[in-house]
Write a protein that binds this DNA or RNA. Structure first.
Lengths: 344, 344
DNA sequence: CTGAAAGCGCTTACAG
DNA sequence: CTGAAAGCGCTTACAG
């Protein structure tokens, strides 16, 4: 391996001057700098980061602890966002995945600490409570998409209530009043938050909630065995004397099941009935016909904001809730014509 | 930061002995080892990896170049597989994402090379040709899910033809003869391979292909604007004098559209008609009702095998094609009753 | 089984 | 603007 001394010899200068060139020290004559640059090119020299780290006592590495974010589709955007910001700061990410199959989490953390990471970002696959390893406190740390009740680290979470209010208001603005809300898996942290956001928006619009069916009991993404629940629910509400003109689904996978249930009963989403949802899980949301109007989880932003906080750009304390983005496609445009027919 | 010397002082021995304990050198008396271990615990000592790397000239780091694998749902399994194997070998992964938003790929590679990675694994988001940076040849490298026609690196790809043959044979074994194949986006490398696998299995079963519709022109996953194509196709085939009893979809997102198109026309998947597909893209494949029978992409295996090759466990040269796994759910069980009705 | 010396490839702090 | 010395925290190679 070619070292700084080889370059110095080639450039006929001291190795200290080479070091200055590498580190963009302005105190180098242009002519000298050019000679050094040429030598670097000629020899294919690359500074040895281990040596720089050891001497400077700064690793330039941020640890990204991924609690299954590469398993859950789209949560990977947290990683992308974090990486973008780290990049801008000249830091690199070292990622460890905490899968079921991976070794003891302790070892993964040890590895990061031995590499002298300057900070830790712990990201989880979906919005939930997480267990923070004790050692995380030995270095600056932040949380994204997960929270801990023991620790009080800067934490960045999706604003579930805002999302529910915003999508509900969109449906209300379209003239809908008979809106059915089918909640996500009730074990999710998001479940009560989305439900209360929905209720608040309805209340503020002066719409009575007694016509609204909010089955906390619909099992969603985790189990996966509860498909038939959505069919049953749709069957039920379509028989109401006044069927809903809009259906708000607690997550996109439930919206997909809702599309299917409606289609097989001859109802046309976006025409006979409006449908909207949460998460923006692709390719579901983009490949459904009509395109699914849904609130997109702020994964990218959680990653960015958490990394900015970690690198000292900002100073948030405690929990910061980040807004979802409305992805307006066609499914929310249903005018409830079919429902009107039924009544008539 | 506490160093090896602090530990030596605490354990009343030389720092060389501490080094031996850290490195599991058997030539240390049990009593001495215990004293050193105690000192390590007491001081919370962690070896400085930069120092070890510099002195030993071995970084223990493998570079994982992710060409959008965290963007594409499930391709993240390549990373998981690679990480599992690296783990077993005591290596750690340093991942760089090549997103649209990330800096010049050159810089990402420079960073890895400066960290003295011992090898590089280049993984792409879907099966396609990739551009390999020149510098990748300066260190042992392998490819997963992507291939390069310039370089001749060990390459691990999904066996598209095997997958198509296997799923087609499953449908044939169920008694289906009138099988429609709706191809994926024709620009995909997988498109002609899946099509030819399908044709071969049909030919081998002695089924004439003239009743089989293979629209190379169905645009799938990339565009996303071609939803209506599937509707049109389904409309067309259902009007055939002898409608198909099974529909094989080139990818799961097309299967989802097929389910919807069939449902809105009163056809019941898994009963009136069989449906099968490729990729096993969750949650689509698990949340569709009935569950979608599909060939799962060998992402995890590609990651594992590529890493094993990189670490010298195996010695494959050139391209190795890895089999898909059959995910047998309920959608392929359709008996074509509706089709029979139509005929009768 | 244990230790003293040398040195990995850089940056720091100081001198000129 | 340039350089000689010291040292970051370990492992290597050798000696005892």
């Amino acid at each position: 391996m070619v070292s700084i001394k080889d370059v110095a010899w080639e450039a006929k200068t001291s190795f200290k001057t080479v070091s200055r060139v590498i580190n963009d020290d302005p105190a180098v004559r242009d002519e000298t700098r050019a000679r050094v640059q040429a030598a670097i090119e000629a020899l294919g020299y690359r500074p040895n980061s281990a040596a720089r780290i050891m001497r400077s006592q700064r690793s330039g590495v941020i640890g990204f602890i991924s609690d299954r974010v590469t398993t859950q589709p789209h949560a990977g955007d947290i990683l992308r966002g974090a990486q973008q910001v780290a990049d801008q700061h000249g830091k690199v990410l070292m990622t460890v995945n905490l899968d079921d199959e991976s070794r003891y989490p302790q070892r993964a953390l040890d590895m990061l600490l031995e590499r002298r990471v300057e900070g830790l970002l712990y990201a989880s696959d979906y919005h939930r409570e997480v267990d923070i390893p004790e050692e995380m406190h030995s270095v600056p740390s932040v949380l994204a998409n997960g929270f801990s009740t023991q620790a009080s680290l800067p934490t960045f979470l999706p604003d579930e209530s805002q999302a529910a209010q915003e999508i509900t208001r969109l449906l209300l603005a379209q003239g809908h009043r008979r809106i059915v809300y089918i909640g996500p898996n009730r074990r999710l942290v998001a479940a009560p938050l989305r439900l209360s956001g929905f209720r608040q928006a309805m209340r503020e619009a002066g719409v009575a909630l007694d016509t609204t069916w909010t089955p906390d009991g619909v099992e969603g993404p985790l189990g996966g065995e509860e498909h038939s629940r959505v069919e049953t629910i749709i069957d039920g509400v379509l028989r109401w004397p006044e069927p809903p003109t809009a259906i708000l689904c607690g997550q996109d996978s439930i919206a997909m099941q809702t599309y299917l249930a409606l289609a097989s009963r001859g109802w046309c989403v976006g025409h006979d009935v409006a449908v909207a949802s949460f998460d923006d899980q692709r390719p579901i949301s983009t490949f459904l016909t009509p395109g699914l109007t849904t609130m997109a989880l702020p994964h990218l932003e959680m990653g960015r904001r958490a990394m900015r906080r970690l690198l000292g750009d900002t100073g948030e304390q405690g929990i910061t809730r980040l807004p979802f983005a409305l992805m307006e496609r066609e499914s929310h445009r249903g005018v409830g014509e079919r429902a009107v027919d039924t009544i008539g």
